[in-house]
């Protein structure tokens, strides 16, 4: 049947990428499982987890597709060097990524206060988001650009690489650095 062979074609094309993303998701799930205890110390941590992870996708997905279009148009070269466009795009994603992280801390704290749930101190939530935001941004920028350039130089269409790279790196490193930030704030706060 023609319909079934069409379905099979799309399925086969999309599956490998999604399996890689699922691997990243499971890995970060295992880290989250280890964080369940810390959640009692920091009321609001669970609120921030999905928002923080989603933001990584939004900021670096945008950076990735900008770089992909730039490569396609020949506006930037697939190498790490001082390039005005590349520097601007990277700096913007840095500002966006860290700015929105800090804002998530503030937003979570305010919403919980309104709901009457007694959130952890504002400074703790913001500190966790700031540390996790900075570390994740550094790894995402280097990892994303490195992998896109590598793929592009080997003849892959960067448009197809951005989505899975961002999802997987974002899940794995976002969660890893969130755990690190929580541990850091836990230690310094007590």
């Amino acid at each position: 049947m023609a319909l079934l062979s069409d379905v099979w074609g799309i399925y086969r094309q999309a599956l490998p990428v999604l399996v890689v993303a699922l691997g990243g998701g499971l890995f970060s799930g295992v880290i989250l499982e280890g964080m369940v205890e810390s959640v009692t110390t920091f009321t609001g941590l669970f609120v921030m987890v999905p928002v923080f992870l989603a933001t990584r996708g939004n900021v670096y997905g945008a950076l990735g597709s900008r770089i992909a279009s730039g490569l396609h148009q020949g506006l930037i070269d697939p190498v790490f060097r001082r390039d005005e466009r590349l520097l601007n795009a990277v700096f913007a994603s840095f500002i966006n990524g860290i700015g929105i992280s800090v804002l998530i801390g503030v937003l979570t704290w305010s919403v919980l206060l309104v709901l009457g749930w007694q959130p952890a101190p504002l400074s703790h939530l913001v500190a966790i988001m700031f540390v996790a935001g900075v570390l994740t941004s550094l790894v995402m920028i280097v990892g994303l650009l490195g992998l896109i350039f590598l793929g592009f130089n080997r003849g892959y269409d960067p448009d197809n690489l951005v989505g899975p790279i961002v999802t997987t790196l974002g899940d794995v490193f976002g969660m890893l650095f969130l755990l690190l930030a929580v541990t850091l704030v836990e230690v310094t706060a007590t």
Partner: peptide, 16 residues
Amino acid sequence: LIVLSGIVLWAGITLE
């Protein structure tokens, strides 16, 4: 980004 974070905040509240 602010609007999208506001939307996903709902998922976070569900989790909490």
